[in-house]
Amino acid sequence: MSVLEIRDLHVTVGEGDDAKEILRGVDLTVRSGETHAIMGPNGSGKSTLAYSIAGHPKYTITGGTVTLDGEDVLAMTVDERARAGLFLAMQYPVEVPGVSVSNFLRTAATAIKGEAPKLRTWVKDVKTEMAGLEMDPAFAERNVNEGFSGGEKKRHEILQMRLLKPKVAILDETDSGLDVDALRIVSEGVNRTREEGDVGVLLITHYTRILKYIKPDFVHVFVAGRVVDEGGPELAAKLEDEGYAAYVKDSNEQASAEKAASEVVTA
């Protein structure tokens, strides 16, 4: 049983006078076995939340806490976070020329497990998981993400999640750029992980499309760097019908009110 707790998280991007606050007090708790969907318009800070939890150096944490089973995630290096059980499926996976998928996967598994997996079972596991994601075996000998199509990159991300078996998986717009077949294949991969174990899933998406395949237990509406509404699956249905317009309007009004207030204070 694991729990990822995010409390009053504030994050900026940029340095000094150019620093811009992207996350403005995020509160979220993800427990094993739960699937949370974070939905919001473009530019609301959804991806910033994902990358901040993973530890991307571009983002600066200016306040709040993130803990995994009570351990301070923010004090860990990027690789320590992964070894602690966090996984981020990226929206734009990075090409690594000269490093084959098979070499990469085994190196990652060795790092996560603390010892090299037994060769025979490992090869079998990789084959099985690749077949489950309908990936050609030749894929293993290609260089990581190099020349991959959008769908291949996302399948490769889910393949890693399957093999590395994280406690909490953050899926950042895994549905973007996928055709219907690829979306189904990728979603089935995520669902297998949910059924098999006690993984907590944080599913970040702009659209409700993927939620037809991966049923969330909780839906959080994310606007202007914070969670503005929470509910069950019915909230996703509402967003499908009405979009984010109402939330964005509220948020704008609130932002101008805050700005006016701060101007009064500084004046």
């Binding site: 993973a54 530890g55 991307h56 150096p57 290096t77 990027v78 690789d79 976070r81 992964a82 070894r83 996984f87 981020l88 990226m90 996976p93 990075v94 090409e95 690594v96 020329p97 000269g98 490093v99 084959s100 070499n103 990469f104 190196t107 990652a108 790092a111 996560i112 260089n143 990581v144 890693q160 590395l164």
Partner: peptide, 29 residues
Amino acid sequence: DDEQLFYLCSRGIDAETARRLVVRGFFAD
């Protein structure tokens, strides 16, 4: 490349190993 480094580290691979992995691939080519 910092983004390559982040990607590899986000899979639990420490920075030194990640660097070696990339350089090794660079030469193997």
